[in-house]
Amino acid sequence: MHLIKPGEGRLFLSPLVVFLLLFLGFPAIVNLVYSVSNVSFETLREPHISGFGNYVDVLSDRHFWRASWFSLRFGIITAVLECVIGLFLAIFLSPLLAKRSWLMAPLMLPLMVAPAMIGLMYRLVLHEFAGPVPYYLYLWFGDSPAFLDADNAFRTLVVIETLQWTPFAFLLFHTAYSAIPLDVREAAALDGATGWTLLTKVELPLIKPTLVVAFLIRFIDGFRVFDNIYALTGAGAGGSTTSLSIYIYQAFFKEGAIGKAVAASVILFIVSLIVLYSLTALGRRKGDR
């Protein structure tokens, strides 16, 4: 058996370090420079450093805080719904999938479609004048809600996001739930644990790491959501569906405020790092107990 010498570990890591420096380090440095500069598309090559005015503009912009609140709510609500529904389906369908594993393929179909295509599809289906759903609601019930107006757009987007990405959480939970050893369940049954007690006292604690990971992945993905919202509603009526990603996009491409857009992205990046580090430290502290 070959033991790795102290110097060999650094040698093995050097390709990864070089990759990170080339493909992540340089753009990060450029973004930091742009975030403290007065820059436009005409002066991209020669930005004029002007201090932290871009950060002040972002933090004093009520639209930034409104977009942040939208992204936070959207990320938490969709992550909770996807994990709860995905866990229920993983447990409920476990006996069926154990006998007919081919059923997993059609259940994963929503993951095969690009989010932007999902947004376009539902934009056509829910369109107030041309969409089939409002048409049949008018035909059968005499009325139909405006699914994409300022009052209902958030709920509509939450439902669409949940429908598309619940299969992802379901796949993770099904894999973890199926991996629980049979002898663990049998031992618990011998101790009198059945039904709800078996689920809450034995099975859920065993798949808890998967639950946490799935929630974090779905929250991060929901928090930075862009493509399906942009294709479905854009910024929305009165900015009602402006996420942080759409806020940055509009500042960069529509307003031409490159420094402001980059400053907002840097703030988002720093906050994300702090949140991830805090959650990692919390999980490590619980693991040490």
Rank of each mutant, 00 (worst) to 15 (best):
R155D: 11
V212K: 09
F219A: 09
I248P: 03
R284H: 10
W65P: 02
L139P: 00
L148D: 12
E186L: 11
S60N: 13
W196Q: 09
K286T: 11
R123I: 00
D191C: 05
K254I: 00
W165G: 02
F129W: 06
L3F: 12
R73L: 07
F226C: 04
G259H: 11
G239L: 11
Y138G: 01
H63A: 15
V159S: 04
S71H: 06
A98Y: 01
R100I: 06
A114H: 14
I207E: 03
V39C: 04
R285M: 08
V213P: 01
A28T: 14
V56T: 13
T197M: 05
I49H: 00
H63S: 15
R285A: 10
I180V: 15
W140A: 06
M121P: 06
I76Q: 01
L171I: 04
A187H: 07
A67V: 05
A105W: 07
F23Q: 10
L148T: 04
I248Q: 13
V113H: 04
S60V: 01
H63M: 13
D151G: 11
G51Q: 09
F170E: 10
V58H: 07
F88M: 15
Y136S: 03
L11G: 11
I85A: 10
W102G: 11
L232I: 02
M1R: 14
A67N: 09
E46P: 00
H174T: 14
G25I: 04
L89S: 13
L16K: 00
P6S: 03
L120A: 05
F19K: 03
A257I: 00
E82M: 08
S265Y: 00
G238H: 09
I220P: 01
G119C: 03
A116T: 11
S101F: 07
R100L: 08
A176R: 06
N152I: 10
D143V: 08
S37G: 12
E128V: 13
S68T: 15
F252R: 13
L20R: 07
V262D: 08
G131M: 07
L244E: 03
F41W: 15
V266D: 14
T280W: 09
S40N: 15
L111F: 03
F129H: 10
G195H: 11
R185A: 07
L276W: 05
T241R: 08
F23G: 11
E186D: 14
R10F: 14
A188H: 03
F74S: 09
Y247G: 10
V113C: 02
S272Y: 01
G25L: 05
R66Y: 04
A28D: 02
L182T: 09
F19G: 06
V39N: 09
F253K: 10
D288C: 06
E203L: 04
L22A: 15
L148E: 13
V80T: 12
K201P: 00
Y136H: 14
L190S: 15
Y230Q: 14
P95T: 08
M117V: 15
A237M: 10
L96Q: 06
Y249Q: 08
S60P: 00
A116C: 00
V262K: 09
I77E: 14
I220Q: 12
R123W: 07
E203R: 12
W165E: 02
F12C: 10
